[in-house]
């Protein structure tokens, strides 16, 4: 039996056009094109390079957090406290700025608070073994509450000009690319490489699909989960720096509700909420779709509340559609 196998086994399955068409990324690209065309029709100002560049300010910070959230959801965890981490990190930077700290000190403070908050979540989840959804609902109130108690109903607005440039300035003048957007693109490229090309990425997929078998295969499941929380906290710290610098102030309600917008992007990007499936390019496309759709609608003065209704519908329809199409192809009843 140690001779050649009794069976002929091909290296891979034959690829079919239907499989490619039904790939989530293909669908997202279609959706993105639809959003661009739709926006171009409803507003003559949409396809303006400066307007588009402006639009990226509004989603780059959330998009950066979405990268970390993607990895967490992939391994069956979640972090609902990311927006509250922004509040706490922004507060810490505000207090430091009040005390006269310069940009060189504010950046490590923002990053450090983010990472510490993430480590706190990670300890409770990976060390003590509490469910991440429960832990981060708790720390969401805890972190935000701390920020509110300390800040009261005031705002801190004394940030150095050099610091504010981080959130408002451009890395390249033409085409105009803001620092935040450039940072997102670089991080997205790194995340894509790590998740889809390295052994570490493969381990994350294994953990998401079967954490027990992953542990039995020598993967340090809980250690990795801990570090993913630290990473996501750190990215929330990055977002806190960019956002605080962009609006030049810290308020108690800063980034309120962002955690859901981040998770919306991750889910629309095709990451399974049950873990184990998803891609970074998918999430990047989803970020663009949501960001540009929001931007286009606001150009024609659709109120924010209506935009959120439309985005909710977009999420549900686009997630239901491939399932419905697959059932139709297999001749199964849709409902």
């Amino acid at each position: 039996m140690s001779g050649p196998s009794r069976y002929d086994v091909a290296d891979r399955a034959p690829r079919t056009l239907i499989d490619f068409m039904l790939r989530w990324e293909t669908i997202l690209i279609g959706l993105l094109i639809a959003v661009v065309i739709g926006n171009t029709i409803i507003s003559p100002y949409f396809l303006d390079i400066y307007n588009l560049s402006d639009a990226t300010f509004n989603f780059s910070e959330k998009a950066i957090i979405a990268l970390g959230m993607t990895l967490l959801i992939l391994v069956r965890d979640i972090d609902l406290s990311v927006a509250a981490i922004i509040a706490l990190a922004s507060l810490a930077m505000g207090l430091a700025a009040d005390a006269g700290a310069g940009t060189g000190l504010l950046i490590p403070i923002g990053l450090g608070v983010g990472a510490i908050c993430g480590a706190f979540n990670g300890l409770l989840v990976a060390r003590i073994g509490l469910p991440s959804i429960v832990v981060t609902i708790g720390t969401m109130s805890l972190f935000r509450g701390l920020a509110q108690v300390i800040l009261g109903d005031q705002a801190i607005t004394k940030y150095p000009a050099a610091f504010q440039t981080l959130g408002q300035g451009y890395l390249i003048k033409w085409p105009p690319i803001p620092y935040s957007f450039a940072l997102f693109l670089v991080l997205a490229a790194i995340f894509t490489f790590v998740l889809h090309k390295t052994a570490f990425g493969r381990k994350l997929f294994a953990m998401g699909n079967n954490p027990i078998a992953a542990q039995f295969s020598g993967i340090p499941v809980n250690r990795i989960r801990f570090w993913l929380f630290v990473l996501t906290g750190l990215l929330a710290g990055v977002a806190a720096i960019l956002l605080t610098a962009r609006i030049g102030s810290t308020r108690p309600n800063i980034a309120l509700g962002w955690e859901l917008e981040v998770i919306t992007a991750v889910i629309l990007g095709g990451v399974s909420i049950a873990g184990g499936a998803g891609t970074i390019p998918g999430v990047v496309l989803a970020v663009f779709i949501l960001g540009l759709a929001t931007f286009g609608l606001s150009l024609v003065n659709v109120p924010g509340i209506v935009i959120s209704v439309l985005l909710g519908l977009l999420l549900i329809v686009s997630i239901a559609m491939p399932i419905v199409v697959r059932r139709l192809l297999k001749g199964k009843p849709v409902v």
Binding site: S5, Y7, A10, D11
Partner: peptide, 14 residues
Amino acid sequence: LGGRLSVKAAHWEQ
């Protein structure tokens, strides 16, 4: 290894 153990499959990505 798949060959040595005579794994029966359509392809190795199955």
